[in-house]
Simulated scan of single mutants.
Amino acid sequence: MAKADEKPDETARSRTLRQLMEVSRVHSGVAVMFHSAVAARQGLNATEEKTLDLLQRHGPLTAKDLAELTGLAPASVTGLLDRLETKGFVHRARHPTDRRRVLVELNRDKLAELAELFEDWARDVVEACEEFSTDELRTVIRFLSVMSERGRAAAARLTG
Rank of each mutant, 00 (worst) to 15 (best):
A4L: 12
A4P: 01
D5L: 08
D5G: 02
E6T: 02
E6M: 07
E6I: 02
K7T: 04
P8H: 05
D9E: 11
E10Y: 01
E10Q: 14
T11S: 09
A12M: 04
A12Q: 06
R13M: 08
S14P: 00
R15H: 11
R15C: 01
R15W: 07
T16R: 07
T16W: 04
T16N: 04
T16V: 03
L17D: 00
Q19Y: 00
M21Q: 09
E22V: 11
E22R: 14
V23N: 08
V23Q: 10
S24P: 01
S24Q: 12
R25M: 11
V26F: 09
V26E: 12
V26A: 07
S28N: 11
S28H: 13
S28M: 11
S28F: 13
S28E: 12
S28V: 04
G29R: 10
G29F: 05
V30R: 09
A31G: 01
A31D: 10
V32K: 06
V32D: 06
M33N: 09
M33S: 12
F34Y: 15
H35M: 10
S36F: 02
S36R: 11
A37G: 07
A37N: 08
A37W: 03
A37Q: 11
V38Q: 01
V38S: 03
V38K: 02
A39D: 02
A40G: 06
R41K: 15
R41D: 11
Q42F: 13
Q42E: 12
G43L: 07
N45E: 08
N45M: 03
N45W: 04
N45V: 12
A46C: 02
A46Y: 03
T47G: 02
T47D: 12
E48I: 05
E48G: 03
K50F: 11
T51V: 12
T51Q: 08
L52A: 07
L52T: 07
L52D: 04
D53V: 14
D53K: 10
D53Q: 14
L54Q: 06
L54K: 08
L55P: 08
Q56C: 08
R57Y: 09
H58C: 09
H58V: 04
G59A: 06
G59I: 06
P60W: 10
P60Q: 10
P60T: 11
L61W: 04
L61V: 02
A63G: 12
K64E: 15
L66E: 06
L66G: 08
A67N: 10
E68C: 00
E68V: 13
L69G: 03
T70W: 05
G71K: 05
G71E: 06
G71Q: 06
A73K: 15
P74S: 10
P74E: 07
A75Q: 14
S76P: 02
S76K: 14
T78M: 09
T78A: 13
G79N: 15
G79D: 08
G79K: 14
L80A: 05
L81R: 03
L81Y: 04
D82E: 12
R83G: 04
R83K: 15
L84I: 02
L84F: 03
E85H: 07
E85L: 02
T86I: 06
T86K: 15
T86F: 11
K87A: 10
K87M: 00
K87F: 03
G88K: 04
F89I: 03
H91T: 13
R92V: 00
A93L: 09
A93C: 05
R94Y: 01
R94K: 14
R94D: 13
H95Y: 01
P96A: 03
T97A: 12
T97M: 12
D98K: 10
D98W: 01
D98S: 10
D98R: 10
